[in-house]
Structure formats: structure tokens, C-alpha cells
Nucleic acid binder design. Sequence first.
DNA 1: CAGAACTACCTGTACGATACAGCTATCTGT
DNA 2: ACAGATAGCTGTATCGTACAGGTAGTTCTG
Lengths: 157, 157
Amino acid sequence: MTDEHTADRDELALGRIETEVALLMRFGEATRRGTGTTEHRLLDRAAYVILRHLASVGPQNVSALAAKLNLDGSTVTRQVSAMQRDGLIARTPDPTDGRGTVISPTPAGLQRMAAVQAARTRLYGDILAAWSPDDRDSLAELLHRLNQALESRPRPR
Amino acid sequence: MTDEHTADRDELALGRIETEVALLMRFGEATRRGTGTTEHRLLDRAAYVILRHLASVGPQNVSALAAKLNLDGSTVTRQVSAMQRDGLIARTPDPTDGRGTVISPTPAGLQRMAAVQAARTRLYGDILAAWSPDDRDSLAELLHRLNQALESRPRPR
DNA sequence: CAGAACTACCTGTACGATACAGCTATCTGT
DNA sequence: ACAGATAGCTGTATCGTACAGGTAGTTCTG
């Protein structure tokens, strides 16, 4: 912004970030698809994210979940139905609103979530085995800030 | 590994990384889905990735693309067919192998790819407007290293 | 307080991206 | 020259998602 070198450097960094995020996304998807192996036999990803959210902020109704996850309500309805069938969450009528249904994680659901989380953490430990603690911290911190930046800018258009 | 404090700190960082990557993935998908708005009207994501790869390493056959993108050959076949229909790539018989088909980007394809790339880079510039150049560089670098680490460990199991 | 407008959820349906299985044409090694 | 491998295509199935429409319950308004 102040001089041309800085502008160039920024351009470059942004391009690299764009590239790397795209690449990471590819990896994530490939992993998700390809890994029927472990976790995803236990818990498909949507269920994992829903459980994490329920665990962190407490029981929620379908609409709140949908809003948080950026998904259509109907999608969440179905995912929640599947999770109920699998005993991962429980539906109870919302006492304060006859239309609503409150979704709560079951102990089994929380336990499965924790197991998947642990497996993933282990996986990262494996992948980042050669990294210094400082680098790990930095990555965690920068990703956190990136997500914050993304969150505060939900409508890119 | 050497002392308990380090181990704890690592655990923590790994957990955070796991969380943030999952979150980033969610964002990416939500953006992809929700954004019929701009880029994705122009170029769906698979096409973008394919074009990027073709642009960076030159014309490829379907199998090579599939391997690189971690996708089934049939998937790539269909994507490539759609891209051919849209004039983004051209198929030519492989002169050195009668079975093969070489996929090359067309000028139109490269141009669309560049436009999407520019749009994305601009978007990141927007999102990271408040970041210092140093932080941007760090993020780019760490993401790059993360992807490298992921790549050298393609089969987590 | 009655009807209108809204909201929460569910169900039907459609679509896109993907995988797997099976096919044909071609190539390669013995 | 034949057997087996490989490249690509097509058929079919699945999964996650969205959108449209329906029903029941809630809130607002005159």
C-alpha cells in the first residue's frame, strides 16, 4: 500500500494463499472420500460437525444448526434424522416453542465425536511429526485468524 | 517428546489445527455451494483445479489428471467431457499411445481460469485486508508446508 | 380475539460430484 | 502371438445438498 514492493509482495502472498487453500480443500475432500477406512465409518463429516457444535454450545434447534453450519434446514433435518436413528442425538420438543425441536447430543454421540476428534488429532500429529512446536503454534494461530476473517465476511458478494 | 510441557503444548496445537482445518473446510464448502454468485457460474471448482493443473504442468492424459487430483478416472472423464463441451479444454489423441487422450487447456479455458484465480486472489485480499504482509507471508508459507506434509503422506492408513 | 403473516420443521424431488463395476481398444512383455 | 495390463468410456448407485411445497404452531395487528 505504501510502496510498490509491498504491493507486489502482497499480491504474491495472496496468490500463494489462494493456491494453498484450494489445494488443502482438495486434500480434505480426497481424504474424506477416500477414507472409508477409519473415522468416516464411525461418523460422517456432517455428523461430526454437528456434534462438535452441539458439544460446544449446547442443545440447539434445527434452524439454529442450519444457520451456523450454513446449510439448508432440510439438509440438517435429514442429517439429524440419520443421527437420531444412529443414536447420536436426541430430539425433544422445545418446551418454549411448540414448533421447535431441540437437538441434544447423546452420550454415545459425544463419545463418538471425541473418538473421531482424537483420531484426527493423532493424524495431524503424524503428518506434522517433523514440525517444531513453534511452527505448529503458528499454523494453529494463523488458521484461527483466517477463519475469523472469513467468518466476519460471510457474504463475499 | 522430551518433556511433558512440550507434549501438552503439542497436543493443544494439534487440537487447534484440527479444529481450524475442519472449520476452514466447512467455509470452503459453504462458499462453494452458496456462491452461485460469481466464479462458480463461470467455472465450477473441479474445472478450475483441472485447468490450474493443466496450466502449470502442461497437457495431461485423463489418468494422470485423476491420479493428481485424487479422483476416479471416470469422474475426470466426465468432468473433462463437460469442459470440452464448454470449450475449456481440447481432447487430442495421444500420438504415442493409441489408448490415451491428451487433455489440453484452450485459450478460453486458460483465460477463464485466470479470471477466477484473480477473483479469488482479490477475495483473499479483501478478507485479509487487515493483515500485515508478514502474517500473509507466514500463512502462505505454513499452508504450503502443511500441504507438502499432507502430500508426502497420502495414505493415512 | 380473529385473521394475517410469519416461522420451524418435514417431505418430495432434483441435481451434482463422486465411486465402482464392467466394457472396448490398445499396448507390453515373454 | 497371446496373456495380462492399461486408458478411457459408460452404466449405475450413493451421498450431500438445495429448493419448493406442506403442516403445525406462533406472533402481530386492527
